[in-house]
Design a protein around this nucleic acid. Structure first.
Length: 326
DNA sequence: AGCCAGGCCCTCC
DNA sequence: GGAGGGCCTGGC
């Protein structure tokens, strides 16, 4: 099915850069290292080099979704639910209801940000499912993307529901995709503390165990948090074990409709001191940085955060993986 | 071998 | 209120 879009969308930056952890590149289920771009194999003889966008697959709303960019929009398949059912969910999940050009006008306030925007046009903030997002960022403290990805996948495999997507013949999609849904709070609540510990989550296992009980028992109501104002949502989030200011802001930004949320991690901390509070200025703590940013960029501060984060990796160090194949 | 990671929490000052 | 150390595990 084709989902028409008329604004830039950069799938690799949006899906694989650390806001969600269940997206993979490639036609079929494969957890081997991504490696170099794969050959299509069929149109090698063709003199005209048709540059085809890669497929991605992930799991949202208990569906496997496989998608890629095509002229005019997004081509996608889903299972077990029909594409007509998944289409609006996918649209919403990808944040395509947000006018990104308006966002850029609001956050393009200096050269650094404008450079980052120019380098990552179409990198979006996802609108994820709050429960999965919460567990993901409980995993994230003192960790890294590959490890978080493994932790989340292990929980899905152990406590979620197995799914498969068999692409229709002649669709040009090759390979069966087998994934598991991320467990619901009730499903994950069946896990014992020891079982979680055995997934090698480290000390995060305790946070996840405690949090799962709270959500499954209804003592934490994530859906309700989408309706609250920023301060109330933040306060409610920080009641959750293992959730501090940074993690709360990540969850709020990526899943609770708070595009004004501004998570300050070590990288943002460095970038802001380096770029906005230069040498001798007194050091601001993380909460002060967040308040300053929210003042500066208002209701799209979270987008500024994401572009600062990626902008710094752009200028700070070399860009190791970049899909700019000739 | 030893240090540290995309934090949080608890203790102590 | 804020600085400092501990915490599972994995990677360098």
């Amino acid at each position: 099915m084709l989902l028409p879009i008329d604004q830039p969308l950069d799938l690799v930056s949006t899906l694989l850069s650390g806001q969600a952890f269940r997206w993979r590149i490639g036609d079929a289920t494969s957890f081997s290292s991504p490696g170099p771009p794969r050959r299509t194999g069929e149109d090698v003889a063709s003199s005209r080099q048709v540059r085809e966008e890669p497929w991605y697959h992930g799991v949202i709303y208990r569906n496997i979704v496989k998608l890629r960019i095509v002229p005019g929009g997004i081509e996608f398949y889903s299972a077990p639910d029909d594409e007509r059912v998944v289409a609006p969910l996918l649209m919403d999940y990808l944040g395509l209801n947000v006018d990104i050009n308006e966002v850029y006008r609001n956050i393009g306030t200096d050269d650094r940000l404008r450079a980052s925007i120019a380098h990552y046009p179409g990198m979006r903030i996802l609108r994820q499912e709050p429960w999965e997002c919460l567990v993901s960022f409980l995993c994230a403290q003192a960790s890294n993307i590959p490890r978080i990805t493994k932790n989340i996948e292990d929980m899905a495999t152990a406590f979620g529901r197995p799914l498969e997507l068999d692409a229709p013949a002649g669709s040009g999609v090759r390979g069966m995709v087998r994934r598991s849904s991320f467990p619901t709070p009730q499903e994950l609540a069946t896990a014992t503390r020891q079982q979680l510990w055995d997934l090698r989550l480290g000390y995060r296992a305790d946070y996840i165990y405690e949090t799962t009980q709270l959500v499954a028992e209804g003592k934490v109501d994530l859906a309700a948090m989408r309706e609250m104002d920023y301060d109330r949502t933040l306060a409610a989030m920080m009641e959750i074990p293992g959730v501090g200011d940074k993690v709360a802001n990540c969850i709020m930004l990526f899943s609770l409709d708070r595009l004004d949320a501004f998570p300050v991690d070590v990288w943002i901390d460095r970038a802001m001191h380096e770029w906005y509070f230069t040498p001798q200025g007194k050091k601001l703590n993380r909460k002060q940085l967040r308040l300053w940013a929210m003042q500066q960029w208002g209701r799209h501060a979270g987008y500024a955060n994401h572009y600062l984060f990626h902008g710094r990796r752009l200028m700070g160090k070399e860009d190791q993986r970049e899909g700019s194949v000739a």
